[in-house]
Design a protein around this nucleic acid. Structure first.
Length: 188
DNA sequence: ACAAGGATACCT
DNA sequence: GGTATCCTTGTC
């Protein structure tokens, strides 16, 4: 059972979407090039983080929509917000909630299963995730659909509540005590 | 423990 | 114009 997640999934409160993404699959279709055949990668998400609204001081949207980088956070749900940081890393978010309400879920970790060997490889860290899935600025602002080559699927896996832990978001001490202490990080 | 690396934000 | 910072990782 594979069901592509549509905009209705993402157009909900950011925390609900974040929790709901655990156990869902991020799927990447990599087109053939340079003699290499096309291939499809599927990564089950195991850690995500919510950035919720214009007042969230940990969010790129907290300083308003005056800069070109964060415009997609204000867009409609189900689009990717991909940005470059630390001089070398791409990080990917999926935009949530209604248009003009800046919110997104950062994808931080997943698990990959090799179809032949059945071997499961953890992919931990948001920049390792984008590197593994071949995500960069080309996907920024694109809708999460098959046409984009990057989308989400529900493959029928349910993550029970007892398997989910929440915690503070990573690396957001600068956001002040209120927002830095929000338990907006969800992991299996 | 810290360098790498480059865009961004926020000054002057 | 300058410069401190950044939702990190790899290697020390």
């Amino acid at each position: 059972m594979k069901k592509i997640l549509m905009q209705t999934f993402f157009n909900r409160p950011t925390l609900v979407v974040a929790r709901g993404l655990l156990g869902k699959y991020l799927v990447r279709r990599i087109p053939a090039r340079g003699g290499q055949p096309a291939r499809t990668l599927a990564l089950m998400l195991t850690e995500v983080e919510a950035y919720d609204g214009p007042h969230d001081l940990a969010s790129h949207a907290s300083r308003g929509r005056k800069t070109p980088r964060n415009v997609h956070m204000f867009g409609n749900a189900g689009r990717f917000y991909v940005y470059f940081t630390y001089g070398m890393h791409w990080l990917v978010n999926v935009v949530t909630g209604p248009k003009d309400y800046p919110a997104a879920v950062l994808l931080r970790a997943g698990a990959y299963q090799d179809l032949k060997t059945k071997q499961i490889t953890p992919v931990t860290g948001p920049a390792r995730l984008t590197k593994f899935m071949h995500i960069d600025k080309a996907q920024n602002g694109k809708l999460a659909t098959r046409a984009t080559g990057l989308w989400f699927e529900d493959r029928g896996i349910q993550i029970p509540a007892r398997a989910v832990s929440t915690g503070k978001r990573v690396g957001v001490d600068y956001a002040g005590p209120v927002w830095a202490s929000k338990r907006y990080n969800f992991k299996i």
